[in-house]
Each structure stands twice: as C-alpha cells, then as structure tokens.
Amino acid sequence: MMNTRQLNFVWVVLMLATLATYAIGEVGEQLGIVGPLAMAALLVISFVKGRLVALDFMGLRGVKFFWRGLLIGWLLLVSALIAIAYWIALR
C-alpha cells in the first residue's frame, strides 16, 4: 500500500505547496493575491497538504472511509471556522 515512489512524490508536492504558502506571504501583494482571495488560496493549499499527510503519511488511503472522514472532516471543519471568522472580520 505504501511505496517509496508515492511517499517521495507526496513529499515533493508538500514542499511545493509550502513554497506557495510562503510566496503568498512574501509576494502576494505584488501578484494581487490579497484579502479573501489569499485567505481562500491558503486554506485550499493547507487542505491539500493535510489531506496528503493523512492519506499517505498516516496511511489512511486504504482504510475504511470512517477514519479518513474523521481526519478530512477535521480539516474541513477547521478551514470552515477560519473562513467564517475571516468573513466576520471583513464586515
């Protein structure tokens, strides 16, 4: 189920995603990625990263949906709460 190539591939994707998060912080303004767009991009990136960690590093990919659902559900819930709080702050 777990194989070297898949684990290495996930590591590369996670590194690139981390670079993207850092870039939004450093040059987001120059690229026009600010405000709600930046918030949404950051949450999507962290969701993608968290999902890969849960499925491939934690080894939940081949496990019953219940367990994957708990971890991915946690990611979605936390992301939703952060988005709601961000939206409240805009008003």
């Binding site: 998060t21 850092y22 939004i24 912080g25 930046a38 918030m39 950051l42 949450l43 990136i45 962290s46 990263k49 968290g50 960690v53 849960a54 590093f57 934690m58 080894g59 971890l71 990611l75 936390v78 992301s79 952060i82 961000y86």
Partner: peptide, 26 residues
Amino acid sequence: IESGAAYWHMVDLVWIVLFPLVYVMR
C-alpha cells in the same frame, strides 16, 4: 512503529494549518 509514526504525522498535520493561519493569513 505505526502508532508512534501516526502521532508524529499528527504533529506535522497541525503545523500545516498553524503556519498559514498565524504567519501568513491577513
């Protein structure tokens, strides 16, 4: 080893949310 590894991945998972939230999002 799988149990210990799962805990370590959890520590990573949490930081993956913490870093953008606290250091980047504005």
